[in-house]
Amino acid sequence: MISTNYYIILSAILFTIGALGVLIRRNPLVIFMSIELMLNAANLAFVAFGRSWEIAKGEAFFNGQIFVFFVIAVAAAEVAVGLALIVEIFKTKKNINIDEMNSLKG
């Protein structure tokens, strides 16, 4: 039988992999993907908690699912702006190594 524990532990593991990716990779595109992975792990935890609440109370609330819906929308907005920024940085620097992005003047 699957308990809420299992989903939350899976979510924690995925979140940790995402955090590790942000720390060790130097390619901003991969760092972005790791951030998406972390958002996704949080979403999984939201839906799992929502489902266990639903089962415990015997009544549907959907707050968790609706929160996940908003998180997906915010992630889409974030990706659009972030990728536009990366393209712009690439156009000015011809390089997207994260170590060289240390000046605001471009």
Binding site: N5, Y7, S52, A56
Partner: peptide, 8 residues
Amino acid sequence: AKLDTVIT
């Protein structure tokens, strides 16, 4: 955490 609700 005692999150042992069985999810079906």
